[in-house]
Computed example of a mutant assay.
Amino acid sequence: MLRSLPVQLRAMKPVVVFVLGGPGAGKGTQCERIVQKYGHTHLSAGDLLRDERKKPDSQYGELIDTYIKEGKIVPVEITISLLQRAMDQAMKADAQKNKFLIDGFPRNEDNLQGWNKTMHDKADVAYILFFDCDNETCINRCLERGKSSGRTDDNRESLKKRIETYQMSTKPIIDQYQKMNKVRRIDASGPVDQVFKAVQDMFDKEASL
């Protein structure tokens, strides 16, 4: 009984994979497939923020709306509170489902510092899953998605701002984790099935270590 106790305790702590890449790199699509294949819980920082801004009683809704329309990064305290609430709810429903894909976070140094300050003893970050894709492919994918997504930021003007923000703010976070050997890079420029094959190879390798 005593020997199994640490394992049980570890199971109660969320294990997080940060999923990063430019807008249109396919993060959401690939996360859906990872959930189906490996049983992780997918949390999209962007989706959580968009859902929150739609709530008529949300204290953050108007602020989130302004930031998203301008292609800016929402204050870290808001994003982390939404992520933490979502993880708590998921683990309350099933404590054994403690593996999370956090998609689109951290997006800048402020995000990372906020996470480290708030979550350093509450969750373990395994690595960054980095979907690497060229800008033009990302833009074209988002414009195509914008025809049916209803997202106000899937237009060329917003996309250019988002990509600029990504290059200036998010890419340095990936570089920082790379120095710690905590980045798993996936070439995301190809078709969905091809990209997921690379994801599977990486996940299966990680599981065998």
Rank of each mutant, 00 (worst) to 15 (best):
A126W: 03
D153V: 02
M91C: 06
K54L: 11
P56A: 13
K92R: 14
S208V: 09
A93W: 06
R3I: 13
W115V: 02
P172K: 02
R33M: 14
A123L: 04
A207K: 13
D193W: 12
M168W: 00
D94N: 14
D57Q: 07
D193K: 13
Y67M: 11
Q30E: 02
A45P: 01
H42Q: 14
A188N: 05
P56H: 10
D193S: 13
K122C: 03
D88V: 00
K205L: 08
R85G: 10
M119E: 09
R50L: 05
R3C: 04
D201L: 11
L143K: 01
I80W: 12
L9Q: 13
F131W: 13
K97D: 11
L83D: 09
I174Y: 05
S189K: 06
Q89I: 06
D153W: 01
M168R: 05
M87I: 14
R184S: 07
T118H: 10
L2G: 08
E62C: 01
A188E: 04
M180G: 00
D51S: 14
R185T: 15
L49T: 07
G22P: 09
H42N: 15
E206W: 14
A123Q: 04
D121S: 08
I174A: 03
G24V: 01
L143Q: 03
T137N: 04
A25M: 07
K117S: 15
E77W: 09
G24Q: 00
R107M: 06
Q194C: 01
D103M: 14
V16P: 03
D153L: 03
M119W: 05
L2S: 11
F131C: 10
C31D: 05
R10L: 12
F100H: 02
H40S: 09
G22N: 10
R162A: 07
A123E: 07
R184N: 04
S169L: 06
R33W: 03
P23M: 11
R53T: 12
S169K: 14
M12V: 04
K72G: 06
R33E: 05
V183I: 12
K37I: 03
P75C: 10
M87W: 01
